[in-house]
Nucleic acid binder design. Structure first.
Lengths: 348, 348
DNA sequence: GTTAGCACTCACAACGCTAGAGTGCTAACA
DNA sequence: TGTTAGCACTCTAGCGTTGTGAGTGCTAAC
């Protein structure tokens, strides 16, 4: 039994209809709505085959069919069509990017909100992995006897500050000279390149000065290594309640609880090798998710860049009955614009 | 018809029982569970009176009674008892405060999480209103030709940075001198005291130098004025789904939507004059809330301080059928510890 | 290979019924 | 005059029954 043209057409019809209605699709519906030129009885036979092949499922004997995860997988890989993204949405994205460009975190949060609004799904964005961005400037600021502030600025003007606790006070003149020196040596390196061995070699070059500043340099190295606690922004979580598949409060609650686990979100948003890799879009469907609570969900993710480095991920989470085509178009357009404009900003 | 001792006892019993069971309370339940020494028939008569007085409501003819907003109000003002806060909760709070003290925002977020966990309600915390905190240090850092970073540190070591866009480049030596000068003049002032007139007078004192730095000073003044965008952290929102009063998904969704409106949250957490004002705890019950979606909710809020200034608010949001006594105890202990330890930190 | 026809299945809504909880009223009692 | 027992009444929630309609699979004819 092979998957001929007609079977594919019928599967496509079933999925399209189910995406719309969220109700099992019967053979009569297909023969009436999508004129394939055959009667419902024929379609019934084909559907029986499709079920045997595992692409569709019958919730109970006297109901229509719904797509299985395997069916969706086939759909996104072969059948899916990409609708044109509406102009006004592109405009909104551009506007946010231009307005909020000077503070990358708030730009990401705004984009997140917008994305959840236009998709009506739940959206996730991971903050830029600082390790991958290059150091633009660093500065040590005296605060009080026991503490100094370390300010780091990386590509894309991402500013971070950290309070360093020290044991012996350091005069502000010394701090200033140290700042200058560190800038000279470290500017242009990615943060992951600024590791303990590098700092050790710096110390040695500095001789007696290095000895004096031993502690501070250690703390700086350590701080930079641990700067990369990834933040994850989520938006439109309640959109989940709009889908009939989550009418059951318990099911929704389970999912919400899962989404509170930061580790899980980090995993979801971590880049993984997948078939659509070449076009920078990954789709995870239903059971392909590790988390039990997400077996009824799908996630579409894509990476965004700052400079020439992939630094973060954007994800759209919805029920497996998700409008994959629309989400994929929207996402790929979105990152395209982001990359474009961030690049412009950094060059200009 | 007056509110005699017995009526109060019966009202108390009704509320206690309803807080526990979430079911309308009948006269027989009360006569059996809370031995008031009178029969259910007598209690029935009293309940009829209490209903006429507006303290309790009968959902339908053949059901028991539930407290009205007016009933809860009387309860929190006269009848409520304050349970002793459990020791291990205090320990948890202390631990968080001590561990996270160097970054006040993350301390607040952790406390928020803990508070929602131990109360099982939804909790809100507003970030410190910087306007009320005193400037400890400020520093201008050169970034590139078109921008500099302004770092401000205020009481409680709250660090903020802002990217200032400038038209003509300023040499880093000049920026350093300017930083020093600003520190000398402005340290110890609250941010709301650093306003445009003050900056104007600074300019004049600086003479020709002031002229040169005209733009930068303007931008600084403006930035400091607008630094006070309040952030609001929310935790345990899904706890709402645990309460039978929000079993109706639509109702829960409405509430969630309301809680997405930042303006509303700001209003909820803004200090308001209220009866319990003297003990720094405010309670808003059901219809006393402005937002329509919150008519079935109550909010208990309290303020926290940094230094001698009230800078933020903590709130607990739950159904009107909330364990007011427990929430009030927990909250008042919490702020007490926070104040205590923050003060220690700043003095020591 | 396709289609019309038909018997069969099953979820779901509608309906009626019953049990149970709770009330209000009345009359008797202290 | 306040309290209580008794009783009729009300209303909800749960349960089983039934009917309907959507959808299927199978068979036989085209």
């Amino acid at each position: 039994m092979d998957l001929n043209e007609r079977k594919l057409k019928i599967l496509h019809a079933i999925i399209c209809d189910y995406l719309e209605t969220a109700e099992p699709v019967g053979s009569r519906t297909i023969s009436k709505k999508y004129n394939l030129g055959v009667s419902s009885a024929t379609i019934r036979n084909e559907m029986s085959d499709l079920e045997e092949l595992g692409f569709i499922i019958q919730p109970h004997t006297s109901a229509g069919r719904i797509p299985s995860d395997k069916g969706y997988r086939l759909y996104v890989e072969q059948l899916m069509e990409y609708p044109v993204v509406e102009m006004y949405q592109i405009q909104l994205v551009k506007q946010i990017i231009v307005e909020k460009i000077d503070k990358i975190e708030s730009m990401l949060q705004e984009i997140n909100k917008l994305l959840s609004m236009i998709t009506n799904y739940t959206t996730l964005i991971s903050s830029p992995r600082l390790h991958k961005t290059k150091l633009k400037h660093m500065q040590l600021i005296p605060l009080d006897e026991r503490s100094i502030i370390l300010v780091t600025v990386t590509d894309g003007n991402i500013v971070r500050n950290h309070i360093l606790n020290i044991t012996t006070p350091i005069p502000s003149q010394t701090l200033l000279r140290l700042s200058n020196m560190l800038n000279q040596r470290l500017q242009g390196l990615t943060l992951e390149q600024i590791n303990l061995p590098l700092i050790q070699s710096l110390k040695q070059q500095m001789g007696s000065h290095g000895l004096l500043l031993n502690d501070v340099l250690d703390v700086i190295a350590e701080t930079i290594q641990f700067v990369d606690e990834p933040e994850i922004y989520m938006s439109g979580a309640i959109n989940i309640l709009d889908f009939p598949e989550f009418n059951d409060v318990l099911k929704a609650k389970n999912l919400f609880h899962a989404l509170e686990e930061k580790d899980l979100l980090v995993t979801i948003l971590s880049p993984k090798p997948f078939k659509q890799q070449e076009q920078n879009i990954q789709i995870t469907i239903g059971n392909e998710n590790i988390a039990e609570e997400m077996k009824d969900c799908s996630v579409v993710t894509t990476n965004y860049r700052i400079g020439d480095q992939t630094v973060g991920t954007i994800g759209v989470l919805g029920p497996t009955r998700m409008d994959y085509g629309r989400v994929v178009s929207t996402l790929s357009h979105l990152v395209e614009y982001m990359d474009h404009i961030i690049k412009d900003l950094m060059d200009g």
